[in-house]
Amino acid sequence: MSIEQWIDFAKGPLFALTSMIMVLGLLRHIVIQVYELVAGKGRRLSAAPWRKILNEGLGWAIPIKQIMKGTPFFSSVSYLFHIGVIVVPVFLADHIVLWEKTLGFSLPSLPSGWADFLTIFTVACVLVLLGFRLFGDRQRAMSRLTDYVLLLLILLPFVTGFLASHSGMNPFPWETMMLVHLLSAELLFLVIPFTKLAHIVLFVFDRLSAVHWQLRPGAGDKVADALFGKEARV
């Protein structure tokens, strides 16, 4: 196959396949969570403080207060990074064409100057976050290989996409760059449901601890019965 054919393949069937895996993988998380909540908690769901949960959750949409507390620089970078990482891939003019072709609907696109700025900005954010992981004592203590790899994996489609659309800065043939761009993005699609990146849907369920404090009546007894039989257990 010629490289053009590869690009077409990556844009067509491969794109459809990987995005489907991503969507199904994320759906799986949602289905499991909803099932466990409904089956496990049942009627106790209605006793949970939903309003409080909602208010607290929405409070994080524009988390100025939260950012100012504790780690303002890291948190602002992280927040802006999340904006970039959502806005750029979805609203880029070139991508909109792709959405139209595969999904059948169109979206307003980013003006190209903005797109460039946001891309560079997001890349810069990733680098800062990487820096925090590498050089911050606390973060390094917590981080494992995947935490670094995922950041790099996010970086890749941004950098390659930018270079592919700016021929003046691109030291490589456009086709190569484009192919790497497509494949790296698709790799990311595959990885999302199986790694911590799944928080793009699970963050909703993470916030439900107040629901989980509605313990199951009688469960403690059953656990104790299973482990010790009926004798004294204090």
């Binding site: 466990e36 981080s143 369920f205 989980h212």
Partner: peptide
């Protein structure tokens, strides 16, 4: 088996981002 912490653990163990805030 008998409680319902499982859902929460599933969610946490997949999505904990380790941001250190």
């Amino acid at each position: 088996e008998f409680t319902d912490y499982k859902a929460l653990l599933d969610s946490y163990c997949t999505s904990s981002a380790k941001c250190n805030r």
